[in-house]
Design a protein around this nucleic acid. Sequence first.
DNA 1: CATGAATGAGGCTTCATTCAT
DNA 2: GATGAATGAAGCCTCATTCAT
Lengths: 226, 226, 226, 226
Amino acid sequence: MTTSTKRNIKKQQILDAAEKVFANYGFANTKMEKVASEAGISKGTVYFYYDTKENLYMALTYQAIQFLIDRFYQVLDEQRAYPGIEGSLALVHSYLQFCEKNPLYADLMLDYMTVNRTTRDGMDTNRLTAALQDSIYYRKIQDIQNIPISLITQEIKRGVEDGSILNKQQPELLYLLAWSSTIGFVKLNSAAGKRQSLLNVDVDVWRTQLLAQMRQMLLVTSFELV
Amino acid sequence: MTTSTKRNIKKQQILDAAEKVFANYGFANTKMEKVASEAGISKGTVYFYYDTKENLYMALTYQAIQFLIDRFYQVLDEQRAYPGIEGSLALVHSYLQFCEKNPLYADLMLDYMTVNRTTRDGMDTNRLTAALQDSIYYRKIQDIQNIPISLITQEIKRGVEDGSILNKQQPELLYLLAWSSTIGFVKLNSAAGKRQSLLNVDVDVWRTQLLAQMRQMLLVTSFELV
Amino acid sequence: MTTSTKRNIKKQQILDAAEKVFANYGFANTKMEKVASEAGISKGTVYFYYDTKENLYMALTYQAIQFLIDRFYQVLDEQRAYPGIEGSLALVHSYLQFCEKNPLYADLMLDYMTVNRTTRDGMDTNRLTAALQDSIYYRKIQDIQNIPISLITQEIKRGVEDGSILNKQQPELLYLLAWSSTIGFVKLNSAAGKRQSLLNVDVDVWRTQLLAQMRQMLLVTSFELV
Amino acid sequence: MTTSTKRNIKKQQILDAAEKVFANYGFANTKMEKVASEAGISKGTVYFYYDTKENLYMALTYQAIQFLIDRFYQVLDEQRAYPGIEGSLALVHSYLQFCEKNPLYADLMLDYMTVNRTTRDGMDTNRLTAALQDSIYYRKIQDIQNIPISLITQEIKRGVEDGSILNKQQPELLYLLAWSSTIGFVKLNSAAGKRQSLLNVDVDVWRTQLLAQMRQMLLVTSFELV
DNA sequence: CATGAATGAGGCTTCATTCAT
DNA sequence: GATGAATGAAGCCTCATTCAT
């Protein structure tokens, strides 16, 4: 095993540990010591691989987006032979699974958006935001951030073109409707606690309805306005 | 003006300031000093009215829920003459407005759920959670937490009974679908920044579609499964 | 009732309250708010009469010494007809009662001695000590501090002269032996708690033995050295 | 030198520094920053070894009692061949030396007794007391607190049995008389300041008399009541 | 490279004191 | 005079980060 490989394994171990800890405590309440102990190493070593807490967080964000992109390509590959609506729903489904696997993923992307925003707006950038933007991973994410969105909207367009999707709204709008539903679903479930069923509603039924609603949306020509 | 009234006014001023600061920085990055200066008073005075940061946060949560409940009652009063579907959608709409007015409100409730959860589960309660549960407002919230949900599900039931809502799913499920969509919508918009339109989609169009989708949902007998 | 009289009554109420609170919590852990509430008045009023916490403490010290002096004169008056040994022991006894009535009295005098000492030594005077020395009562105490000691040593001398006291040691030494026993007795009892008997020894027996030991001491010509 | 050894050395250095500072300023006026600088380290390091000020104080208390116990065993070992009265007086003497070496030791034990008392009584436990009781050392002290008393009373009993001690009072009572004298002696001397002689009485003479008085006490059959 | 002790800036909170009413 | 809200200096403690071994 090369030195580089060993380094990468260790980096991955840290990332895995960080994922657990950030997911349980959130960014602010996560202690580097806890990440280290979760990874079975010392604090110093964590700092050897990730020089700030913010950098570690951004590395995790980068990885999450990479995973999502990989998954999306895989789904697209599987769905190539089917109509666009199936590919689109499969993408949404895989995104939902992705977020359910670890609610942190949804937060990571939301946080990235927030950080990214303050770069543009002239907002009073606080220390935290500035530190996040300093991360090398911040730049790396900027290069790939649009890929998931791009893949999904392209698939919707394919569905519109092959006639399987009837809704003629902007693909981006359709994506936002799906994305926000997913985020809300994940947020509520995560806040309620994984074991707990919210309002006595079965989570599986809920998820199924959510997806059914999305299909419905793609099949409808237009919505009546409220 | 009585002494008690003056006290309440000051408490409200602090709460207003806290709302701004928590909304901008989140709980962890909010400094009591900042809340004080935002309220135009000194740090000590903030502590005179709210003895911990956590208590201030919970007071805000309590107020948010109270506001929501007040708004709900008002909406229900206005919708009394109309069929249940209109009342239900009006409630959802008012909830959406409520969260859009200040995205912090959505977070407050989500955070409350998380805190509340650790009370039930035997989770490894951290310092923050424990402090939040110590707040007098935590107890007060427990007494009213179920009212919004109850009001909305009752209105859905009225709609089912008067025949305006055709979907025969559990009202709770319908509520969750609406609730999660709303949270996702608010979260995404707040992350993107108020001035920024996400993916070049007009927010008003997005919101309209969201509500249309909800009406659709209530009018459909049942969804096809994916 | 004159204005001046009313003032004095109020000052005395505050002093009484302060006595209770200082006795229960010690100087550092006593809050002016607590003194005020104990006196049934507001914090501002306490400050109207005693402009610093240290001043209040020194006022209490002054009063304690005054009380002790008054008591000593009274005892001396009662004992005038009896031999000096009886007068001396009666003084010691009254001192013991004085300290037992409120253990704070012993502390007040000890603290005064400490504060007084740092005036002489070139010690690194801390803020607290400096503030105590600033009190107007500090000066007043300086004028009367030696009276109790003087009264007791004079009475011992009278006993030596009238032949009732056989111990020819310095009266000051005899006083110190009595004084330190008393302080130790009070300290231990106060630490143990008033209701609690220490090591299952009856406090009354202990006190009796203590006084017997002192009489013994005055009656003995000289001690064997250890 | 092992890691564990180094840690213990550092812990001891901090304890030594804390001893000086607490002795000079008392608990309330001691600043952790001062302890740190006295130890030649930073505040953070102090907290690395002792997580609260109260814990540090209790650690010191524990050490003081341990030292006393060690000293007592040593004295008992030396006195094994001599009659019980000599052993008893030697113990008292060593206790006196122990307290004179650092008056803080007497305070530590007194404070411990006070803290311990509020555990039993249903007293309105204040923050400080609660924090002291939370210390891990508080528990450790509870396990050894009775040893010094036990050793001394046993030695007195030995003296009674071998006929060297004639006083037939409870050994516990005799111990209390000795203990309180010692505490009073130390308190007065510490308040007066080490360099200062109180009332122009030579401290060595005073101490000698104190010990002579104790021997006297053990040799007397019974005291006349006052 | 790994460790874990050491650092110190930063933030929460307390409470003596002040001051407007 | 009395009140109690307002102030802010001061001190405890946390924890990201550094660094000697």
